[in-house]
Amino acid sequence: MANEERKNWRRRLKVPKTAVVGEIITIKTMAEHVMEPGVRRDPETGVIYPKKIIDTVICRFNGELIYRSQWFSGVSANPFMSFKMKAVTSGLVEVEWTDDYGQSSYKKAVLIVYDNEGKEILPIKVDNINPNKDII
């Protein structure tokens, strides 16, 4: 039982490591989950297995919500989803899955975005920081 429960918590997230400015990248997500629709019965006893599905999937980039999806019982088991994102600056991509029991799990990945000249574009402008004042 413990092993089966652990299976429900495996998550995968695939984000390309580098991108060029203005490029549209694909983010692939995969969650290992039973996605019990709440309709199936045990063939011997006739008892309905209780509903247990992933409700919401959220994607944030540098803390800003860019994409959200709400799922119902029609999504298949071990749900795979891929979506797009526009690369503007390099930063942190976070994807969060939430159960209908309120349990959540998340994965993160780092995306580095390069200029056309080959320079990295940082989310914060480093030139404006005064090292004597701002960094203690």
Binding site: I24, E64, K84
Partner: peptide, 12 residues
């Protein structure tokens, strides 16, 4: 900011 509304998913 999601550059293209393009999603693929598996359903029942």
């Amino acid at each position: 900011s999601s550059g293209e509304a393009n999603v693929s998913i598996r359903i029942r």
